[in-house]
Structures are given as C-alpha cells and as structure tokens.
C-alpha cells in the first residue's frame, strides 16, 4: 500500500497491492524443481510396483500449480483510488484487465460493511445506486484504515 499526495492533477492517490517478492522466473524454478523431484520419486517407486504414489503426487502438483498460478496472477494486480479535482477515480488492474470507475466527489459515499463470519469487511464507494468495491487485496484491518482515510479526505476538501 503506497500513496502520495499532490502531483497535479491528483489531490490524493492511494495504491494497494500485494507483496510480490517472487519473480515469475523464480516461480517457475521452484514449481519446476518440485514437479521434477516429485515426479522422479513417484515414478521411481512406480517402476518398483508401487504406482499409487503417482496419483497423490499428481494431485499435489496440481494444487501447487494452482497456488503458484494464483500468486503469479496476483503479483501484477493493483488498485488505485485517486481524488482528482471533483472526481474520484478507481482503477483496477486484475489479471491483465483494467477497469475504471468514476464518481462525482460530492455525491460519492464511502461504505464500509464490517466483517461477518470470518469474511473480510467490504469497502466500497457508492453513488446513485452504483457501488464499486475497493481494497480486494488488503487485509480486513487495512480496509478499515483505508475507509477512515478516505472519509477524512472527502470531508476535508468538501
């Protein structure tokens, strides 16, 4: 989570993104080596007649693959929320798709629904019956914090 003030024409910018310390090369290397090791082990035993390790290794590699794909997809994801003149702009970049939502600053309302049953609270901007969520890759606590910050910002400049 990073943010900066001031640079024209934005009055306020807030960027949220995950830590992503693993490069895609690193990801492939780790995944590749695990697949190789696991395959070597289970094929080795299969050759000696104990083939039932193979399906388990396969299932595990599939799970590992999805996990690594998920963190790979996450790596580039970010959301920004910027206040820019009398507009509030939410830009979302998720798995290669960009979406952009614009709100009128004077009509927009920050909505925060507290968490229930272990699910994180929902933070959204609402205006004229339209609601856009923000802060998908923030933890619950960070969302609370962002909600407060945004409310302050909107109140400030109003």
């Amino acid at each position: 989570m990073d943010h900066a003030y001031g640079e024209e024409p934005h009055n306020f910018v807030l960027v949220s993104q995950h830590n992503h310390s693993l490069s895609s090369t690193g990801r492939n290397a780790v995944l590749g080596s695990l697949v190789l090791v696991s395959l070597a082990i289970s094929l080795g035993f299969a050759l000696h007649g104990a083939w039932m390790i193979l399906p388990f290794a396969g299932a595990e590699m599939a799970l590992l693959f999805f996990a690594f794909r998920a963190i790979g997809r996450r790596a580039g994801n970010y959301e920004t929320i910027s206040i820019c003149g009398d507009r509030i702009l939410i830009e979302r970049w998720e798995s290669g798709k960009t979406s952009r939502f614009e709100f009128n600053r004077f009509w927009a309302q920050v909505v925060f629904q507290p968490a229930r049953h272990g699910r994180g609270g929902v933070l959204a901007l609402r205006s004229h019956g339209r609601e856009v969520q923000f802060g998908r890759h923030l933890t619950q606590e960070q969302r609370v914090h962002v909600a407060r910050t945004l409310k302050e910002q909107l109140r400030h400049d109003r």
Partner: peptide, 16 residues
Amino acid sequence: YLLIAVMPVLAGAVTM
C-alpha cells in the same frame, strides 16, 4: 519443500 516432496509418498504408502 521437504514436506511437499515426501507427503505424497506417505499418502501412497498408506493407501496401498
């Protein structure tokens, strides 16, 4: 890393 490498071996062994 070790766990990921050997857990299927245990699972396979007890399944057999």
